[in-house]
Each structure stands twice: as structure tokens, then as C-alpha cells.
Simulated scan of single mutants.
Amino acid sequence: MQQGRVAAADKFTSETRWGVMSTVLVVEDSRSQRECISHQLRCSGLNVIQASDGVEALDKVERNYPDLVLLDIVMPRMDGYGVCRLIKANPETRNIPIVFLTGKGQQLALFSRAIDRAEAYVSKPWQPRELLATIKKVLLNANIKFDRASADAWTEYGILNLSTIELYQSRADAWTKYSAQIIKLYDSSLAAFEQALAIEPSHSTANKYRNRVQTIRAILMKQLEKSKPCKVCDYYYGKDGINCAVHPGGRPQELCRDWEFN
């Protein structure tokens, strides 16, 4: 993580300018729309990386620190509002500008808190000129920098991760479909509380939540260890009715190396 923060610091201290191969992360679950948008942006001199849903988007943001995120709202696993809240709450990514791309313009008022955190939005069906002009404006006005976050900021980010976990766990298929993501969110929250305590060792809220997360995570890992992990898909199968995410119907007719080796 330290290397990522150093890379982010180098990236965020440089000016972001249109035409200097700024990197845009395009997050869209429709492959055809994602490829179309990506083609338009590349033809306009931008470097493009892609994500097909909210979970993949968060991973790409942490790995690549893009100059801008073009974010669809209605997506599987995690919607755009959840992605936006986590990006803007994370002290390491909060200054990355976000442009919402959505066909649900009539619902924007219902999500004003998430919209307020984004820099702009473009409605579908988008017009190429409007889309490019909006991205250009946001990039030119972006003030992307790497600054030292407070213990309170890290604590708030950790708590937001825990709130996101609650949304996942409220689903009936939480552990058969989202176990890997839930564990990752617990790890992210724990890392956030550790960061807060590194800055302010006496921070009572961070200490309380860190201890709670450590206890809960240890219990969950013991429960998950009762089922064998699938090394291919990072989900679990076998016992207690938990199925393989790749082969939910059971052992496939063709050779599946994970079934054979576990």
C-alpha cells in the first residue's frame, strides 16, 4: 500500500491537462456501450482503462489512480452511488474526479448526497461532443493532489466500508455470491482503522471499531474455512449448500482443476 501512496503522490502533484494522455476509467456494465465510449475517448487523445461493474471499478481505482472516473450508476454487485461514496471517502482516492453516466436522470434528486460528491454527470443516450466537453472541463478544473489525511477521515472511511458490508449481508445470497467482496471490505475497513491509529494512537473510535472488526473477521474466517475455497473464482463450494460460483450446478462434465485438486 505504501508504494501505491507514493505513486499516487507523484501522480497527484502533477498537473492534469487534456491531451497529455490523461487516464480515464470507464465503468459500464454494458460491454457494447463501454467499448463505444472507450473508442471515442481514445480517439480524442485519452488513455482508457475499463471496468464492468462497481467492484472491479474500486479495484482498478486502487491499482491505477486514474485522472478521472466515468461512472455508470445502474450496475451489478455494486452500483455507481456506492462506488462514488467509497472513492470519495477514501483519503487516497477522494480527489479523483467522478463523472456520472446515467440513463436514470429523473432519479438524480433522490441521491443528492452521492451526486454532490461527483464533479458532473452526463445523461444517456450521451452525445459524444457533450461527453468529451464535460470530461475536458472536469480534467482542466481538477485539483488532484495527494494530501495527508486525518485520523477522523480514515475512521470515517472504515465505517463506510462496514456500512457497505451491511448492504451485502442483507441479501439472501450474500455468502454464496459476495463472500470475497465482503472479506475484502472487512480488510479495507481494518486497514483504514489501522491508518487512523498510526496517525492518532489514542483515537477511541478507531480503536473501538478496529477491535470489533478484528473479532468479527476472525469468526467469519473460521466459518468459511469449514468449506474448501475454490482457487479459481475465490468463492466457496461443497458444504452447507454453498456452491461453486463458476459451476453452481455441481461438478462439471469437463475437467475442472479446482474440483479435482481440492
Rank of each mutant, 00 (worst) to 15 (best):
K104Y: 13
G54R: 05
Q107H: 14
S30W: 00
Y235N: 02
Q195I: 08
N211G: 15
A89I: 10
A8F: 08
S227I: 03
S112P: 00
F111L: 08
E92P: 08
C230H: 03
A172M: 12
A153C: 02
I165E: 02
A9V: 08
Q106H: 01
A180M: 00
D67C: 11
L224N: 06
A51P: 08
Y186L: 04
L46G: 12
T164F: 14
I242Y: 13
D187A: 06
Y236S: 04
P66R: 07
K60H: 10
G45K: 02
K145N: 07
K177V: 06
T205A: 02
L167W: 00
H203R: 04
D67M: 04
R117N: 11
W175T: 08
M75N: 11
R129I: 13
F12G: 11
V20E: 15
W154M: 11
L68M: 11
N243C: 11
V61Q: 00
S52N: 07
D53C: 09
L140I: 06
Q127R: 07
E35W: 06
K145E: 02
A109H: 11
V48M: 00
K184F: 07
L220V: 01
I242P: 00
L197A: 10
N143T: 04
G4T: 14
S30F: 04
Q195H: 13
V74S: 14
N47F: 06
V83A: 05
L160P: 03
A118Y: 09
L86C: 04
W154Q: 06
I219K: 15
V6D: 13
M221Q: 15
W126P: 11
P229N: 03
N143W: 05
R212W: 11
T16D: 14
E56A: 10
V55M: 02
K136E: 04
R210F: 03
E130A: 07
N141W: 09
W175Y: 15
A180W: 02
R31T: 02
Y186Q: 00
K137C: 10
F261G: 08
N143P: 09
L41R: 10
S38T: 08
Q50R: 05
L139M: 03
L41T: 01
E62S: 15
I242Q: 12
C256E: 02
C256M: 02
D116N: 15
I216A: 11
H39C: 09
G103H: 12
E254M: 11
K222Q: 15
S22A: 15
I115K: 00
L139Q: 05
Y157H: 09
G82Q: 06
Q195N: 13
T93L: 01
G103K: 03
E28T: 09
P201S: 14
L71E: 12
S163V: 01
I216H: 06
